[in-house]
């Protein structure tokens, strides 16, 4: 435990040393969150109702997804660079010498506290679009956001583990992250193969749409309640993939 605390402290101090970049990063995250919002607003600027869904309903789903995305970005940003810095760059060897799990070290070295505005932003939009939240609803929202974060983390960990099997410079994590922007959209917005993929292969429908539905009066499909189970399963699978990838890691020799 002492080792963990000392480690977290060092990481935070190092992070605060680059204040300019840190502040810009926070602004960047906030504006990034704005892309999805602008898209929803632009859509409903053009038409009042899309396949039976209103702007406010979609904004609730968007807010849940945004809070989960920001929470995941805050904790899992290291996965973005895990491949280029740690595996190809050989830094993983250094981590393996230390008494903490290497995945935990990768995540901690890149903890991104600047992502908090996205969480506030997402929850705020849910609150606004829903017309306030009761205590129970806030609890439901918290469960939905945490479940969504676990799904995102599980998928990202699984994809970043590809770098442990196949050597490549970039990372598929960025690719996956781009698809998360479509987490809030109801499956009926998409052609069925795409909707199915977004519920199974990359189960991001469970990050935004499903937990968002819990808060809506709209008639919703029954499977949206499976989200917590999906979250546990996806996170477990992701960690499993990383662990077995690590067993195959042969070092770059640098």
């Amino acid at each position: 435990m002492r080792a963990w605390l000392a480690y977290v402290r060092t990481v935070l101090l190092a992070r605060l040393a680059w204040r300019g970049d840190w502040a810009l990063g926070a602004v960047g995250d906030l504006v990034t969150a704005g892309i999805g919002l602008v898209m929803v607003v632009a859509i409903f600027h053009a038409v009042p109702l899309v396949r039976g869904w209103t702007r406010e309903e979609l904004l609730v789903c968007w807010g849940v997804a945004e809070a989960a995305r920001s929470l995941c970005w805050m904790t899992c940003r290291g996965l973005y660079v895990a491949n280029s810095i740690y595996v190809v760059g050989g830094e993983l060897d250094r981590l393996l010498l230390r008494p903490l799990h290497p995945l935990a070290q990768i995540l901690l070295e890149h903890v991104h506290l600047g992502a908090w505005p996205g969480i506030v932003w997402g929850v705020g939009v849910v609150w606004w679009a829903h017309g306030g939240l009761t205590v129970e609803e806030a609890g439901v929202l918290a469960v939905g956001v945490l479940g969504g974060t676990a799904i995102l983390a599980g998928v990202l960990v699984a994809f970043s583990s590809i770098g442990l099997y196949v050597l490549h410079r970039g990372s598929a994590v960025g690719l996956v992250w781009q698809a998360t922007a479509f987490a809030p959209y109801p499956p009926t917005f998409l052609p069925w193969p795409v909707a199915l993929a977004l519920a199974t292969v990359l189960p991001f429908t469970f990050v935004g749409f499903a937990p968002g539905c819990w808060l809506l009066d709209h008639e919703v499909p029954g499977w949206v309640w499976l989200q917590p189970a999906v979250a546990v399963a996806v996170l477990a699978l992701g960690l499993r993939a990383w662990q077995s990838g690590l067993a195959r890691y042969g070092s770059a020799g640098t």
Partner: peptide, 27 residues
Amino acid sequence: AWRLDVVIALLSATMVLVLNGSVWEAV
């Protein structure tokens, strides 16, 4: 030189195109 990255970039761009295009089609 990094062929897999070229493939990933294409996959990524394809995915966003299909998702984004589908949403606008629904709209």
